[in-house]
Write a protein that binds this DNA or RNA. Structure first.
Lengths: 264, 264
DNA sequence: CAGTGGTCTAGACCACATG
DNA sequence: ATGTGGTCTAGACCACTGG
């Protein structure tokens, strides 16, 4: 178990800090499993302690040696931390500390950027895809479309400090937005599209919140391990006359958002 | 690997069905991991297939033999199914199929029983504890109480078809409800308590939704494996004059509820 | 008591990313 | 070519539940 450690590409100070965390003796084994104790220490180190966002951990083999457990046990702790979004593993590369799973408070009746209690400059939008295709079942119902009706489908990821925090799939009735692509292109802004088509205001008529586990494309978009638990929000926006104009499905890493709904 | 199976306490028909599910050959190994293929099959069997709620699975060792994998691999599939709430393991007893993780649609502005789209008779309430003690930090803020103010704290679990689906901790300002215990006792009803203290109506002023992982007492109350992902809802109720009278924290198994918020 | 799920080990092979 | 994380194995011991 105590073979030579050959840990090159990890910051030496960081390594020393982890060595200290790892060298602590374990508590009464039967009370709390060792892998949970390791999880506790690493989680604490990510949130309060010396580990900082973006830094790379030693390899699983080295960590197992440092914590004096088998790799399987080490991986159980790391897996939980990944499921919670505190760590992110990249195959063939390493394990990295994610941004703090800070809870972003989102108010239901505000737009995304305004509702995040952070500087707008930190938020970046990546457009993943923009295409016209038949509406999904959910969108068909929400937008009151006929079977096979065409929608404009927009996939985007919101990045906060270069980490994805929000992945949305939006669908718009195609017939309402003939100039969608052109209007969207300049500033990647849906508000611009609305304006270009004479829609000055809209309101959210329904929001749904549910939980689940990430599909592979969701995990990819949010840079999470597959099977990570998610929170999903769906919203229907309507114009001032009550006609639905947008259906959106958003996904958040489970522990990174708090949605706030106030009665008016 | 193919040692004698001595599976007694499991229904023989059930065993035969699982044997069929298990005997299917695995697909291209590198495409989808074996443990995920096992998960897929069992998940499907829980949702659509032959497995029914309440029935007991063969032991992990037997399942591992049936599926022709090691127990460790078998456990990975079972663990994911437990995390999703499809299965429930009881130490020293066995693994059981839970009620379908049907999604209960809860509307934000209705009371619990009314908002569940099921017969009221199927819903039972278990009162876990009822005590007076200093307010929690969250309740202090929500109810605008002073540090150390006393609250009445009520822990309850809602059972649907004898399975827990909702675990709440409610806190009420103690000074507003001098007769709480007496009024609650008869029918385990908070509405009765309100009425006994002259509160005829109230409204929900704020709802928050967040996700996280079950603490040990939450897992116990909901009969889930520890570290299971949860959805948490907090709500503040006020009387007609706007004075907050109740703070409640609810927990749901992640994939078993859909919350619906409509704009009025 | 026997059987169960929970934990842990010391190996092994693979696909992947990087230099 | 090397090192990484992802997967898988065949054991082992434990604490718990139930008859």
């Amino acid at each position: 178990m105590s073979k030579r450690l050959n840990i090159a590409s990890v910051d030496q100070d960081e390594l020393e800090r982890i060595r200290i965390i790892a060298s602590e003796p374990y508590g009464n084994k039967s009370q709390r499993a060792i892998w949970l104790q390791i999880y506790d220490r690493l989680s604490n180190a990510c949130i309060h302690g010396p580990l900082s966002a973006g830094s790379r951990l030693p390899s699983e083999n080295d960590l197992a040696d440092l914590f004096d457990v088998s790799r399987v046990t080490m991986r159980r702790a790391l897996t939980k931390l990944q499921q919670e979004g505190q760590l992110q593993a990249r195959k063939g590369v390493g394990i990295f500390v994610r941004q703090h799973p800070a809870r972003y408070a989102i108010s239901s009746n505000m737009r995304f950027v305004e509702s995040l209690n952070v500087d707008a400059e930190q938020v970046k939008t990546h457009t993943l895809s923009l295409a016209r295709r038949p509406a999904s079942l959910e969108a068909m119902e929400a937008l009151r479309l006929k079977q096979g009706a065409e929608v404009i489908c927009l996939d985007r990821v919101r990045m906060l400090n270069d980490e994805p925090v929000y992945f949305t799939t939006k669908e718009f009735p195609a017939d309402l937005f003939p100039q969608f692509e052109a209007a969207y292109e300049a500033r990647q802004s849906v508000a611009d599209v609305y304006q270009a088509h004479g829609i000055k205001d809209f309101k959210r008529v329904e929001t749904r919140v549910s939980g689940g586990f990430a599909h592979s494309y969701e995990a990819e978009a949010l840079q999470l391990t597959h099977r990570t638990p998610l929170m999903r929000t769906t919203a229907i926006n309507s114009d001032t006359k009550g006609k639905p104009i947008e259906f959106s499905l958003g996904r958040w890493p489970l522990a990174s958002v708090e949605l706030i709904f106030n009665e008016q």
